[in-house]
Design a binder for these strands. Structure first.
Length: 255
DNA sequence: ATGGCTTATTGTATAAGA
């Protein structure tokens, strides 16, 4: 089974890249974030033409998450049941016996902002909800844009970013609290290299200079860890014309 | 040097992302 996550920064703009990537990589599930469109605009037909079913939890302009799969998407959940939120950031489904959660975690903007407080509250609710999900699903994968670089080696310049949003201690603590539930950063199960990033700023030639952050993650429950075979960051889509600022993370499992 | 790009909006500048 191949699972992937990709913040596309507008599915309307990125649809050609997504269709090409699906055709080339043939994942069993692709989780998208920042579709930035209402459900009525979602390209169900174009995806169906290449053999992909889709579920979407969208809104105009901001946020929006989707799961694409050639298989049946069962037991679909939109939004966290324990957290009333206007922002469409969560969708989940069971695919071939694996519970797949797609999440777009709050950015937080700046540590002294209301959005940062919302981010911490959101992560607290996410933690509580994942306790329930883990009780129900032994095989659980939580994919998405976490907007947290877990360690200094996941940031191109820890000194410049010290204490800032994406790396601040409370955010990292919230991430570690998710790991404490019995979830595992699949990339770090299989790759110990520094300087491995999933997002690069559009400005300052960030990608060319590898000025990035590793903020997109695939967490897996303990029963899935021994099944993980490879986890790679696919930088190819970031090199295309008019790319998303994020690039896909891809996990292969023997299930 | 708090910007640099990119996206969406019913816009002609602003907000947001990270």
């Amino acid at each position: 089974m191949k699972l992937a996550t990709w913040n596309v920064n507008s599915l309307n703009v990125r649809l050609p890249h997504v269709l090409d990537w699906l055709n080339t990589n043939q994942p069993d599930a692709l989780c998208l974030q920042e579709t930035k469109q209402e459900d009525s605009k979602f390209p169900y037909e174009a995806l169906k033409e290449i053999g992909y079913n889709a579920i979407h939890n969208g809104q105009k302009t901001y946020n929006g998450v989707a799961i694409l799969s050639p298989h049946a998407l069962e037991n679909v959940q939109r939004d966290m049941p324990n957290f009333a939120d206007e922002q469409r950031r969560v969708i989940a489904a069971t695919i071939q016996g694996v519970r797949v959660i797609c999440a777009y975690v709050v950015n937080g903007q700046a540590v002294d902002s209301d959005k940062y407080q919302y981010k911490l509250r959101w992560l607290q609710a996410f933690h509580a909800w994942l306790i329930d999900e883990l009780k129900q699903h032994a095989n659980l994968a939580v994919l998405g844009d976490y907007n947290i670089a877990p360690q200094d080696r996941d940031c191109h310049d820890p000194a410049a970013w010290l204490g800032q949003v994406l790396v601040s201690p409370p955010e990292r603590e919230a991430f570690n609290q998710l790991l404490s539930l019995g979830l595992h950063d699949s990339f770090r199960l299989l790759n110990n290299e520094d300087g491995q990033f999933t997002w690069w700023d559009y400005r300052m030639a960030g990608f060319r200079r590898n000025l990035g952050m590793r903020i997109d993650h695939i967490l897996v429950s303990t029963p899935l860890t021994s099944a993980c075979t490879t986890c790679v960051i696919d930088k190819a889509p970031r090199k295309l014309e008019r790319p998303s600022d994020h690039t896909p993370v891809v996990l292969e499992l023997n299930v």
